[in-house]
Design a protein around this nucleic acid. Structure first.
Lengths: 327, 327
DNA sequence: AAGCGTCTTGCAAGCGTTTGCAACGCATCG
DNA sequence: CGATGCGTTGCAAACGCTTGCAAGACGCTT
């Protein structure tokens, strides 16, 4: 930086200001500094900057899983916006474990990020503690419950469940079931299940069958649960899967057993993963605002950094029911 | 840190040493420092540390896409190992664009990472420049070509193509085809295609038909190319897909057209994505060492940090041909 | 007993920025 | 014409840690 200052014939403080707050520097000097910066290929040392300013152009983001394409899409979208404004993402993978999240938060905080983004609203005491003390925007995404830490960006999983119930009932199914992966791997799937139940019961129909497996959602598990379902509850005529991956496995199982879909069995999933639109038959699904969440989080944060948005905002991005061949 | 020092009754330099290089401090003081650290809940300021030491416990990783589950799995595995040893991952998403990679590398370098991990071996001049000057381990993964920047961790895509060719020929197919997404989105798919061609030609068979779409791999695209293939080349009896996602789309298309798989058409893919093992019929595929790459990169780096591994290593993790119902 | 090497420990000088404060120039105003 | 205020700029003090260097403690050797 001192090289740039020398070349531009100004002090290092002016260089710093020309780079961070261009409008506090006269046009002429700003141009000289820019030229010097470019010709020297100068890249500011982020750590020195961070140390001096005690905050960095960094956002810590914690997701439960990367292999899950929901969160990947959210992160991609978030990164696109944030990178475009000079912010880096510090990514953490909690593996659905609240303790991993805790240690990630603590190590993230040692980098003085400009903000922290978490997935969901379930956190450990210590995490809450640290976050409440940390004086920075906190965003919880993919969930829209009560008592937010600060800002919430997501949609109502309960409403998703209700929509699924309504759709199955509307298409004439009477005996419904909910199939999901292990609750500990997805609190939100449980919420969708609860909403589904509510929807069915409010409509005056019988309480749905509820089938759960012990692991994370998988094509294999979907097939297995489908097999279990048709043998244990042959009267079921409509199924809501907490995840399209399960639904795909179920579809293959139906193909194997030659169960006509949607004639005998109506199937609806969640996620609207790409294959849903192209399988045989195509799959009805509920599309969550995957990328939209990332974009909204990023844009909210950028506003917050510029002081033009307030803490405690609640952004409901909704969802779409995409009706296709399986119902 | 001065608080910890005071509580432990030592100087800050001793605290620093007790934390970074525990074996340079006597057992007693180390214990006192650890106790003080714990009781104060002290978390070192990474930036101050980084600034003073001019390197951080951070690894910059750049992948072309996150939504692609290959790289997600690699990153997850890498993060597990690295986090366990106190390293953070700084993640960048190049979107298959060499210029994005360039700017990511430059901003990563401003954080003085302990190492940089890139996907593939195609980089811009400037990137090469910066990386050659940067005095740190550089790893290129998912490719195993010539002129590595430093360390290479991956497998031979050419060999994958040959294996696919051999398998189709071994199962009696004579008229083969290669189907892939846009080459600009995946240099490596092109290498697999080249290997496939070589394999077919060496075996004395006719040059394979080659079909390419303009976008990234998608279920939809797979179906579309399949349709195109059967109408333009009805004599083809064996197809190698550069990606299981394409293969899934093709399978659905075959179901729609009632083309018997594997009887009339043998299909083999790449990726061994989860659905391959559970579709109807199940899909033959080539399994790349997704997670293994991440683990190997992380372990190599940890060794390098301890000076016990040498630069310029070349790690070939191989791949598996998983034979299933579609061939 | 003096000399020497090794192991520990503390001192203090950075590391490369940011930013509060003061100084300066210039225009406006009374 | 002096006073006042605003817009720019530079000075220098942090920011919280790491690490080279030197000093002290200790145990051996000669």
């Amino acid at each position: 930086m001192s090289d740039v200052a020398e070349l531009a014939g100004v002090s290092t403080s002016t260089v710093s200001r020309a780079l961070r707050n261009p409008d506090t520097v006269s046009a002429e000097l700003r141009a000289r500094v820019d030229a010097a910066t470019a010709s020297l290929g100068y890249v500011p040392n982020s750590m020195a900057g961070g140390l001096a300013a005690s905050r960095t152009r960094t956002v810590g983001v914690i997701v439960p899983s990367l292999v899950n394409s929901f969160f990947s899409a959210t992160i991609e979208a978030m990164a696109e916006v944030l990178n475009g404004h000079g912010y880096q993402i510090l990514l953490g993978n909690s593996g659905y474990a609240i303790e991993r999240e805790e240690s990630l938060v603590s190590s993230f905080l040692s980098w003085s990020p400009a903000a922290i983004v978490l997935t969901g609203q379930a956190h450990s005491r210590t995490t809450l503690q640290s976050l409440l003390n940390a004086d920075m925007p906190i965003v919880e995404m993919w969930e829209l419950g009560d008592n937010p830490l600060d800002t919430l960006v997501g949609f109502s999983h309960r409403a998703v469940g209700r929509a699924a119930a309504r759709h199955l009932l509307d298409t004439g199914r009477r005996r419904l079931a909910f199939v999901s992966a292990a609750p500990e791997y997805d609190r939100r799937a449980t919420q969708r299940g609860a909403g589904f139940n509510e929807g069915v019961i409010e409509a005056g129909s019988t309480t749905p069958v509820c089938l759960t497996m012990a692991e994370r959602a998988s094509v294999e598990g979907g097939g297995r649960l489908m097999a279990e379902l048709v043998s244990a509850h042959p009267d079921v005529d409509g199924v809501f899967f907490s995840n399209d991956v399960l639904l795909l496995g179920a579809l293959f199982e139906c193909q194997r057993r030659a169960i006509p879909v949607p004639r005998t069995l109506g199937l609806i999933g969640f996620g609207d993963l790409e294959f849903a639109a192209w399988s045989q038959p195509t799959l009805t699904s509920i599309r969550p605002p995957r990328r939209e969440i990332g974009t909204a989080v990023a844009e909210h944060l950028l506003q917050r950094f510029h002081d033009s948005a307030s803490a405690g905002t609640r952004i409901d991005l909704g969802f779409d029911l995409v009706v296709r061949g399986s119902t």
